[in-house]
């Protein structure tokens, strides 16, 4: 075989092999498609611990912060890396839990950063009992969206007012 033919076929073979690897075709849609998010607002509340027999959440009865415990979704904050939405759990005028419903996970880097940053943000919120928290270094953009969504949730629940 001539050397030029050998070079050419080897090059073609390598390129074909490279493109058969899964990251070499646009698989972003599979990994990067976000959960559509959930409608913002109060999604669950128990007006009082005693009337919990009703079982079903009744958003209309939970207004004015009368409920002892409630679950509120923040708005979906659009950031550069994608939407961020949090869900806040409030019980007896205290933030008891924050869950990130939607966060950027389009790339491995997003996932690596968020697995590290989201627990820190949650901890900060629980100790600060407000959305006035420090951004996490390396995840400033996501932190911004997190705070925005959280503030919207707290406003909807009239938390602190």
């Amino acid at each position: 075989m001539r050397r030029i033919t050998l070079w050419l076929s080897a090059t073609v073979a390598i390129v074909v092999l490279l493109f058969s690897y899964h990251t070499s075709t646009n698989t972003r849609s599979a990994a990067g498609q976000q959960q559509p998010g959930q409608p913002p607002g109060i999604v669950g509340a128990q007006p009082t611990p005693r009337s919990g027999a009703n079982g079903k959440p009744s958003p209309s009865s939970s207004a004015k912060g009368t409920s002892a415990a409630s679950v509120v979704n923040g708005t979906v904050a659009q950031t550069q890396w994608g939407p961020v939405q949090v869900q806040v759990h409030i019980s007896h005028h205290r933030i008891t839990d924050v869950k990130a419903l939607v966060f950027p996970s389009g790339s491995g880097h997003d996932q690596a950063i968020n697995s590290y940053a989201l627990p820190i943000l949650r901890q900060e919120v629980l100790s600060a009992q407000s959305a006035r928290i420090d951004s996490v270094s390396g995840a400033t953009i996501t932190s911004g969206g997190y705070k925005e969504s959280l503030q919207a949730a707290l406003d909807a629940a009239h938390f602190g007012s």
């Binding site: 390598i14 690897y21 990251t23 070499s24 646009n26 698989t27 972003r28 491995g108 880097h109």
Partner: peptide
């Protein structure tokens, strides 16, 4: 390693 093997298009970029 993760950059090369898991990020979109990065194996091609390495080549």
């Amino acid at each position: 390693w993760q950059l090369v093997t898991t990020y979109p298009g990065m194996l091609l970029a390495t080549a």
